[in-house]
Design a protein around this nucleic acid. Structure first.
Lengths: 152, 152
DNA sequence: TACAAAGTGAGAGTGATTCTCACTTGATGC
DNA sequence: GCATCAAGTGAGAATCACTCTCACTTTGTA
């Protein structure tokens, strides 16, 4: 990303004020190469801006999620995890089960393959892809999907 | 489902003991027509077996999830929600945003459409489809997907 | 510069989930 | 039928993520 703090802040908090704390939170989120929890983010932010409160980070994460700057990937070890969205388009995330690295992926859902049972009209979906990044393809896994992930 | 309590219990708790409490929990889960929280399940079970502890239901839900009898659909209003899986095959769930009704759906993910970026090898995925059941297609929605669900 | 709205930090509160422990029950072998 | 042991149970305490409140500060705008 080639955005400075101000640009980053404005794209992270669309229609809201960008305080120094929020700018730091956006920078920290942007710097994350893997999926992160609010706690990870808080720790990273406090390295830049000591004294930032947990409530501030929770509020900022909600705002960034509303702006599409980050996306929730579900829950890991009891806490919500997020990933930075580099694309404004509809897309999903590939999460490495080895190191937690996240990258954006095109949406592989083929709407024509829905079984239109019981008159159900599908309007949206939530998808996370799990697998292994190039680095981890010989290492054991540490993150598990919250559903049964197997068998694409 | 045409399974009696014992059959149901054995399919819900593969390789584990089936106590009367667990059988009741499996029956209650089986009777759920929509997505349910542990609290919903606890309430339903207590109508059959008063005095069942919350910890027992949490343990039973974990066991049922491990057996593939139910599947976690993520989080709604701060608590985990689950749906009964009627198919042992790889499948997903259609969740009605109006009434919470859940039905099984074939997997609409087309593996050939992955963008194989950075050498990432995809081994699994977690997908929930949102929309409206036939009954709700003229009513307002109440459940929201945890990610941005739009734009299939 | 003044002002209103929005953001902040601290800490208490809430609620879901897990853990512990003494007790009970089920499965198994004899 | 009985003994044994592992697994399950219920109660309640503990934990932890997250939210809420409140007094104060900062930001954007006119």
């Amino acid at each position: 990303m080639a955005l400075d703090g101000g640009e980053l802040g404005r794209s992270a908090y669309v229609g809201a004020r960008v305080s120094p704390q929020r700018a730091a939170i956006a920078r920290a989120a942007d710097a994350m190469t893997s999926a992160f929890s609010v706690d990870d983010l808080l720790e990273a932010v406090r390295r830049q801006v000591p004294g930032v409160g947990a409530a501030t980070v929770y509020r900022a994460v909600s705002a960034m999620e509303a702006s599409g700057f980050v996306e929730s990937l579900g829950v890991r070890e009891g806490s919500a995890i997020y990933a930075r969205c580099h694309s404004g388009e509809h897309h999903h995330h590939l999460v490495c089960t080895g190191c937690g690295a996240v990258s954006d992926a095109e949406c592989p859902v083929a709407p024509e393959r829905y079984t239109a049972s019981d008159g159900f009209r599908v309007t949206g979906h939530s998808l996370v892809l799990y697998g292994q990044c190039a680095k981890c393809q010989s290492a054991p896994s540490s993150i598990s999907p919250h559903g049964r992930g197997g068998g694409i």
